[in-house]
């Protein structure tokens, strides 16, 4: 079990494969049929990069990850909660993860997951309308967004305006095919990047090939 350069994420070699691991908050229970590894009493959960875009980015040697133990994260587009469960593992008991989705069908799954994790909150809200939930929530250190909508950058900017702390971080998964099918993905990334540049500084951009097709993983930081 080795600590990677990102805090809270571990790696090990098994059958010539490099596995990503996080310390499990829920013991040996696994909701997504993921494997667990037990070493000296601490249980680790195996993170599959093909099922999670954050996992794919870390497997592709991401330089800097703003998600660290103990901070508050807002997660837009949580879906069934595969990636959120690992983010919650990284944050640990002292952190707080607010996961949000607007389809009741998937929030049911998310809710059942949340009940077992004390650092996680599930919300049934529309990410397009942050004014409806901004008052209820505390300011967050980091916003993770994976919604695959045409106006996903605008959605992120709206949320960042009302909820992100000054000098807070943002993580975006840009899906080029859901923004414009006809354009070349690289053009799409550049237009989205130039939109972000007004209020954010770009720290890194990463292409998620071969785990995800036509996806870009952007990490940015708020200017003020």
């Amino acid at each position: 079990m080795e600590q990677t350069k990102h805090k809270g994420i571990y790696s090990t070699w098994q059958d010539k494969n490099n596995l990503l691991l996080t310390k499990s908050l829920t013991g040996k229970q696994s909701r997504f049929k993921e494997d667990t590894i037990d070493e000296d009493g601490t249980v680790y959960r195996v993170w599959d990069p093909t099922r999670s875009k954050l996992g794919a980015a870390i497997a592709k040697k991401l330089r800097y990850l703003p998600i660290r133990p103990g901070i508050t994260v807002l997660y837009l587009g949580a879906a069934n909660g595969y990636t959120p469960s690992f983010v919650s593992d990284i944050l640990g008991e002292k952190g707080l993860l607010i996961a949000l989705d607007h389809t009741a069908w998937v929030v049911r799954d998310l809710f059942l997951l949340t009940e077992k994790r004390s650092n996680m909150i599930a919300l049934l809200e529309d990410a397009r309308k942050p004014s409806q939930y901004a008052k209820k929530l505390p300011k967050v250190d980091c916003i993770y967004q994976d919604v695959a909508q045409r106006d996903q950058t605008e959605i992120f900017m709206k949320n960042a305006d009302s909820l992100l702390k000054p000098r807070g971080y943002g993580i975006l998964c840009i899906k080029a095919r859901s923004i414009d099918v006809t354009k070349n993905p690289h053009e799409v990334y550049q237009t989205e990047r130039s939109k972000l540049m007004k209020k954010f500084e770009i720290i890194s951009m990463l292409n998620l090939n071969p785990y995800e097709k036509d996806h870009s993983f952007i990490i940015c930081r708020k200017l003020k």
Partner: peptide, 14 residues
Amino acid sequence: TLRKELMQETKERL
């Protein structure tokens, strides 16, 4: 307390 309140609200909505 925040978590308790919000989870209750989500439960009702679901």
